[in-house]
Amino acid sequence: MIFIRYESYKSYLRYYPFTSLLLLANLVMFLIVTFDGGSNNVYAQLKYGALAVVEPFKSEWWRYFASMFLHGGLEHLFFNSFALLVIAPPLERILGSIRYAVLYLLSGVMGNVLSVSYYVQSSSDVIWLVGASGAIYGVYGGLLYIALFQQNKMDESSKKTLYTLLIMGAVFSFMPGIGWMAHFGGAITGFFIYGLMLRLFKGSRM
């Protein structure tokens, strides 16, 4: 079962350096925003990089990256951190930290781009967006590719766990206040990026 963490604190840092860095970055940014206005304060969030579907914010490219490290409330931070801590590490081991970082960050950015485009076109009342969910769903997308096409890399229990998470995530994505388009866009991006990397890096440990 690849989603059960057996590592000690030190070995976790050694095996999953980028995941560890992400966890730290998310926590640090949450504390900064919390003590400078509050994690549910739109002005504080916009100050540190929240996405918004109105100008001038939606044209500021850096927000599509920065918003991945912001969270609206402790519960939001907890659930994304849990997914990173437990579910993401196997993909970092399979891809290696650099390729894993590329997949994670591109999935998050693409999820944000699609999310903003969707909310602008739909005239939604959603004003601002934060969270690592798009990037995390990119990890899910990469793991789904493995479950479907590299079955020797994932045991049956892990596949069942992943499918259950994806089904629950799909249902959860359509609850009020959840950026479902970021989830969908991130998952699709992660799935295709993993497949592309598999072809680009033939002969590697992938």
Rank of each mutant, 00 (worst) to 15 (best):
S124F: 10
Y16V: 07
P17Q: 11
V109K: 11
L74H: 03
P176Y: 14
F3A: 10
G72F: 07
Y104I: 13
S117A: 15
T164W: 10
M175N: 13
L143M: 15
D36F: 15
R205N: 04
E7T: 02
E75H: 03
S133Y: 12
Y194V: 09
V28S: 00
L21F: 14
L24H: 05
V54D: 01
Y137P: 04
M29V: 00
D125L: 13
L74Q: 04
W61E: 03
S97I: 06
N26K: 03
N40E: 14
L91W: 14
R99F: 14
Y64I: 12
P56H: 12
G177A: 08
V116T: 14
F30E: 00
M110E: 04
E60L: 12
S173N: 02
A135F: 12
S173V: 05
V28W: 01
R14W: 14
S158H: 05
Y194F: 15
P90R: 07
I146W: 08
E92L: 14
I193N: 01
S123F: 15
A88V: 13
N40K: 12
P17K: 12
G111A: 03
A101R: 10
L24F: 10
L95K: 12
L84T: 12
W62L: 07
G96T: 12
G190P: 04
V53L: 11
S173C: 06
F78L: 13
T161M: 13
I127P: 00
L105H: 01
D125G: 07
E156F: 00
A66W: 01
H71P: 01
M206N: 01
H76L: 09
L74K: 08
G177E: 05
V53Y: 09
Y64C: 11
G179I: 14
I178R: 02
Y9L: 15
S97K: 13
F69A: 06
F192I: 14
F57N: 04
Y9N: 02
F78N: 04
Y119D: 13
L91D: 09
G203Q: 00
L85E: 05
R5D: 06
G49R: 04
L84G: 11
M197L: 05
G73Y: 05
F30D: 00
P17T: 09
N26C: 07
S115D: 11
S173R: 02
L74E: 08
I2K: 09
V53M: 09
M206E: 04
W61F: 07
N26Y: 06
Y163R: 04
M68P: 04
F191N: 10
D125R: 06
P176W: 14
L23P: 03
Y9M: 11
V28N: 02
Y145W: 07
F18C: 00
G203K: 03
S115N: 11
Y119M: 15
K160L: 09
Y140S: 07
R93A: 14
G142P: 01
A147F: 11
I188P: 00
A44R: 11
A66I: 01
I167C: 09
S204Y: 12
M175S: 14
G169S: 06
S122V: 10
